[in-house]
Structure formats: C-alpha cells, structure tokens
C-alpha cells in the first residue's frame, strides 16, 4: 500500500485533517454570504461530498486500494441513495401542495 514516500508516514492523515477543517469552516461561514437558498444548498452539499471523498479516500484508504473496491462502495452508496431521494423528493412536494392547511 503506497503512502507518502517522504516525511512522516502519517502526513496524509494530518494534511487531510487540516483540509477538512478548512472546508468545515467554509461551510459554516457560507451562510453569511447572501446567496439564493438553492445555491447555498448546492454549495453545502457539494462541499459535503468533497469532505466525504477525502475521508473515504485518505482516512479509509480507498485512494490507495484497487479502483474496483472504491467504485463498488461509491456506486452502492450513492446510486441507491440517489434513487431513493429522487423519487421521495417530488412526492414530498406533492404532499405539501395537497395538504389542507
């Protein structure tokens, strides 16, 4: 399993840690910038996926494993969750529209 070949063997974890912290702070500060709500959501979700990729790739070592393992995990989790959400979301809007207030 290849890791960073120069410096401390634990570099990759702490560099990832620093990047994750920066991203987290960016996500927290995002609200202060006046942007349309939908854009804020896209921004937060995108950064959430970046964090997830860094944790999966570096901490959980997927970046250094054989590619097919990472593909299996990512496909299993993402595709299934997306399918469930893609159908449930429009349903929730139609429930909202049809609810008697």
């Amino acid at each position: 399993m290849s890791e960073s070949t120069h410096g401390s063997p634990y570099r990759v974890y702490w560099i990832t840690w620093a990047i994750l912290l920066v991203i987290t702070v960016a996500m927290l500060m995002a609200e202060r910038f006046h942007m349309p709500r939908w854009f804020l959501i896209v921004f937060l979700v995108a950064f959430m996926m970046v964090k997830a990729t860094m944790i999966g790739g570096n901490f959980m070592h997927l970046r250094f494993e054989k590619r097919n393992l990472a593909v299996m995990v990512a496909a299993g989790l993402l595709v299934t969750s997306l399918i469930l959400f893609a159908y449930i979301a429009p349903e929730s809007w139609s429930v909202l529209r049809s609810t008697v207030r």
Binding site: G76, L77, S81, L84, I88, V95, T99
Partner: peptide, 23 residues
C-alpha cells in the same frame, strides 16, 4: 459499511421527506 450507510440514507431521506412536506 455500504449497508449500514444505506440505513442512515433511509433515515435521512425520511427526515428530508418530512421536512419538505411539512406545512
């Protein structure tokens, strides 16, 4: 991990549904 992750996906989708459908 994929299976357990999907359990949380189910819970999060349920939460999303109820939040978006709420009057």
């Amino acid at each position: 991990i994929v299976t357990d992750g999907l359990l949380f996906s189910g819970l999060l989708c349920g939460y999303g549904f109820l939040r978006m459908a709420n009057t």
